[in-house]
Amino acid sequence: MQTNIPSTSAALTSLLGADFTTQWRNRRAVIMVILVPTIILISWKGLIDKFGGAFALSNCITIGLISIGLMGYSNAIARDRDKGVFQRLRVAPVSSWSIMASRLAVQLAMILVMTTVVFIAGSYYDKIVLSPSAYALSYVSAIVGGAVYLGLGQAIVGLIKNPETVNSTTRLVYFVFFMIGMFGELGVLGKEIGDAVKWSPYGTVKHILSSSMQPANWDMKATVALLVTIGYTIVFSIMGIKWFKWSTR
């Protein structure tokens, strides 16, 4: 039998099908990614009058983005690399970029789903309703912000080969971002920490999201936060791509 050279579109379609099915069947991870920001949003109902709807929504989406990039993406990559799934695909031969594009497409979809759920929860429980342009801009910012954490996840999975170590490291980093980012933003950890958090990946992503939800208030600080966010993405991605090995052996 003559085998045809795999076409890029056929390979990508096939990989997308497999990766989306895997994501769907791995519903526990999906639920966790959506549940945590939604619960925080609902529990923050009392803070919305004080800090505003954009503050609550942007914090919750940022937390969701962190869990997608760190817990979802990096753990899935580490697990499949260890099992040799990538190795199998590369000898198929599927191009490396197709394999990664498919994985990133799944996470991109997760970002959109999580953001939508947070918006719906915000609208139903907290009566936070944005303008159509604010929603559109927020989705774009969520993708830009998500890229930072996908890049960070890539850097972690590039640096660490063992899937269990990747799992524990991402949980630790998630916890650090979650606690310091959220409480730093609230000013609970003092001024210095609060200022540092503002320019951390947590703070810049949260800032561009918050500004996107109020497009009229987009200022120079938001633009700088966007540039810093892109900078973080580039640095993390370069590190992640440079260090990444397709096999653990």
Binding site: T3, N4, P6, S7, A10, A11, T13, S14, L15, G17, A18, T21, T22, R25, N26, D80, K83, G84, V85, Q87, R88, L89, A92, V94
Partner: peptide, 21 residues
């Protein structure tokens, strides 16, 4: 064995069948 653990045997083969055409 390098498999998609959330897919069935047939689904695992389908992934490669489409790639190999």
């Amino acid at each position: 064995p390098s498999l998609y653990s959330h897919l069935t045997a047939t689904e695992n083969l389908e992934v490669l069948q489409k790639i190999y055409r």
